[in-house]
Write a protein that binds this DNA or RNA. Structure first.
Lengths: 264, 264
DNA sequence: TTTCATTCAAAAGTATGACTATTTGACCCG
DNA sequence: CGGGTCAAATAGTCATACTTTTGAATGAAA
């Protein structure tokens, strides 16, 4: 009832770093990992405050973010409940990150691949007609980075992601561009299942090159075809060695932000 | 500067209704209407509190929501700035609502149409293979509601929106399903530009019927073709009478939530 | 026993004030 | 004139108190 601003530990360590992102990610991760089941109600705000050692302000704003992403829904007297997965905003990059290898559940990975096969060839055709010279140059730059990645498979994937993001951007369709997030997620997690053989990357380089050239020649049909071949390659890779492998990507989701991390 | 919890009007009307949604919508609308320009910094939190007559808690949580939607970005000392339009989450239903007739700016309407023409025929083909009998029945129900709408063009549009949402759902591709929001927005705003002639609706009814029948026969190719015809019709309508007409949808965005609405 | 209205309590929603951390820009020193 | 330091401005965090909403328990009436 008096003041006592920091509850006894005023002596040392009175720092309050920015913890919002951590709390949000922790709760979001718990939801996307099914640690909080769909339909269940998660601890009340005051309990979450204790669990993570933060104020109610932070907890509430975190829940607000998750609510905006469609993960939870709050109501007085009842609490904050986890929404149906059909309400989740699956195009949200953070949700995809929190789901980690679990994007294979619910056939999400397959859905993403279908979407890519539907959209990317069309985007390539549009890009052939609309891309600026700068965008084509950027695309070429991404291709060079893929070529020069050598044995660094992670750098190769990073450049690959950029390649496809630039392509979507070059389609000059703002809705297509919003799909970058799922392509990003798909490629990142495909990385762990893809064939690391050099000859496969050589083939990928080849079709990507054809795509760039088609854009340069403003040949929409060639671009569409090249994009199709790109995706066929990805599908083949996945079909070849994906099914047998286990999920080796458990380390991707970043370390968990355990409750009471600010213990001392 | 003393206590005075409710600024003098403590006597009566000390109610604090749920006002967060209103504040969020007000600021969001101001941003989407370019009243706050891209790159500009909006009033600081304490000023927004005064403007809307709410506490900082509400303002902060509202800004948090807008931040999650990619509309703004907050940084200490600098304030809350409006993000580039390329960062906006254009698939967010609320943003589309706040943009209102302004979806015609930035060619967004055209982008949406392109996306529909790319995705919907594929979704229809998938639906022909995967839809449950219940989903086909629902689709048929939506079609009946279109048929029975009579002269009520709004009811017709509402049923039309439902039709296409059910179709996307029936494709059993979760990513496609996320695109419902843009179709919703497109149809709602196309409503105000579309031809109200009866014969046009008759034709629309016909092709929608063909689509339902194709699904019933599990004929993917026929479904794809019918979906294409549906969209061709929409495009033709828009091209015929859309261009000449002005934007008659100014009343759609709902009334503005003006600052200090809680004046008394 | 069933059904309806009343009351109660639990949870989120709002308000307020104080303090902290971060960052920018200006000022000062070399 | 350049670079480093300091101070002010603003979002971020904390703590507490209060209000509104709403489900459930309670009790009365049919």
């Amino acid at each position: 009832m008096t003041k006592e601003p920091r509850g006894g530990k005023t002596d040392l360590q009175v720092r309050r770093p920015r913890v919002q992102k951590n709390v949000t990610a922790a709760i979001g991760l718990d939801i996307c990992s099914d640690r909080y089941a769909v339909g269940s109600v998660l601890p009340r705000e005051s309990d979450l405050c204790e669990m993570y050692g933060v104020s109610r302000t932070v907890v509430r704003e975190s829940l607000k973010i998750l609510s905006t992403k469609g993960l939870v829904h709050s109501r007085p007297r009842v609490g904050t409940v986890v929404c149906e997965k059909t309400d989740w905003n699956l195009l949200d990059p953070q949700i995809l990150e929190w789901m980690g290898p679990r994007i294979h559940d619910l056939d999400l990975f397959g859905c993403i691949l279908e979407t890519r096969r539907t959209v990317e060839p069309v985007a390539a055709a549009f890009a052939a007609e609309r891309a600026t010279v700068q965008e084509i140059a950027d695309l070429d730059g991404a291709w060079r980075r893929m070529r020069d990645a050598g044995t660094d498979i992670e750098a190769f994937t990073r450049a690959d992601v950029q390649f496809h993001e630039i392509l979507l951007k070059a389609s000059h369709n703002q809705v297509f561009r919003q799909l970058s997030s799922i392509i990003h997620a798909a490629l990142i997690y495909a990385l762990y299942r893809s064939n690391e053989a050099v000859e496969d990357r050589e083939e990928a380089l080849l079709v990507h090159r054809e795509l760039v050239e088609a854009l340069r020649l403003r040949d929409a049909e060639a671009a569409r075809a090249a994009s199709h071949r790109t995706l066929d390659l990805a599908v083949r890779d996945l079909a070849l060695n994906g099914a047998s492998r286990g999920l080796a990507a458990s380390s991707v989701g970043a370390e968990r932000f355990s409750p009471s991390f600010r213990g001392s």
